[in-house]
C-alpha cells in the first residue's frame, strides 16, 4: 500500500466524505454536545480514539472469524457486539490506568458506544475492502473529520447563543439545524477534490 493511497483515504475521510456533514452519520452527538467548544473537543477526541480502536478490532474479527466461516452476513451484529464490549473495556481500563485521560474523555465514552459513526466506520472499512492499516487510518481520520465538523459547529453555536440576531421562533434546535445544513452545504464544495 502506497503512502499516497493512505493520504488519499485520510483526506477523503476528513474533508470529501466527512462523516457528519456528508455521510450524515453520528448526528446525535453532533447536535447534543456541540453547545460549548470544550465539550465538543472532548467528544471529538473520544470519537477519534474509539473509531481508531474499533476499526482495528472489527477488522480482526471480520478477517479471522467471519470471512473464513463465510458468515459475512453477520457483520453488523458482530460489530455492534465488538464495539459495545470494547468501549466498556476501554472505559474501565482508562479509569484505573490513565486517570487524567479518563477525566478528559470519561463522560463521553459511554455516549459513543451507541454512536452510528463508529458502527459506520467498521462497516465502510469492510465495504471498501480496506486492509488492516487502511482500516485504522480510515477510522482515525474519520474521527478527525468528526472533530473538525463538531468544533466548527460548536463555534457557530456559541455565537448563536450569545450575540446572533435571528427570529425568536428559531430559538434552540431549529436554528442549530439550519446552521448545520449550511455548514454541510459548505462541505459539499470539497466533493470535487481529487488526489492522484
Amino acid at each position: 500500500m502506497s503512502i499516497t493511497g493512505l493520504i488519499s483515504i485520510a483526506l477523503g475521510a476528513i474533508l470529501v466524505e466527512n462523516f457528519i456533514l456528508v455521510k450524515f452519520l453520528g448526528i446525535c452527538p453532533f447536535m447534543g454536545v456541540s453547545k460549548k467548544m470544550d465539550t465538543a473537543l472532548g467528544m471529538g477526541l473520544a470519537v477519534i480514539f474509539v473509531m481508531g480502536v474499533a476499526s482495528m478490532f472489527c477488522y480482526l474479527v471480520n478477517a479471522f472469524l467471519l470471512v473464513p466461516l463465510q458468515l459475512e452476513f453477520m457483520q453488523t451484529v458482530a460489530y455492534i457486539l465488538v464495539i459495545a464490549a470494547l468501549v466498556q473495556f476501554v472505559e474501565m481500563f482508562l479509569q484505573k490506568m490513565v486517570p487524567s485521560l479518563y477525566q478528559a474523555l470519561g463522560i463521553y465514552l459511554p455516549l459513543i458506544t451507541t454512536n452510528c459513526a463508529v458502527l459506520g466506520v467498521a462497516l465502510l472499512n469492510t465495504q471498501g475492502k480496506y486492509n488492516f492499516i487502511e482500516s485504522v487510518i480510515y477510522g482515525i481520520t474519520g474521527g478527525i473529520g468528526f472533530t473538525v465538523a463538531i468544533l466548527l459547529f460548536s463555534s457557530i453555536r456559541e455565537r448563536l447563543d450569545s450575540t446572533a440576531d435571528y427570529p425568536e421562533a428559531f430559538e434552540g434546535f431549529p436554528i442549530a439545524l439550519i446552521s448545520a445544513g449550511l455548514l454541510s452545504l459548505a462541505f459539499m464544495g470539497f466533493s470535487g477534490l481529487k488526489i492522484w
Binding site: 466461516l69 458468515l71 451484529v77 458482530a78 457486539l81 465488538v82 464490549a85 474501565m92 479509569q95 484505573k96
Partner: peptide
C-alpha cells in the same frame, strides 16, 4: 450448518467479551 456456525460464533464472541469484561471489572476497580 450456517445457522449453527452463526449461533456458535456470536455466542462464543459474546461469552468471551462477557468474561473479559467481568475479569476487567475486578482488575480495574477504582
Amino acid at each position: 450448518t450456517t445457522v449453527w456456525y452463526a449461533v456458535g460464533v456470536l455466542g462464543a464472541l459474546g461469552a468471551v467479551f462477557g468474561l473479559v469484561l467481568a475479569f476487567a471489572s475486578r482488575v480495574f476497580t477504582v
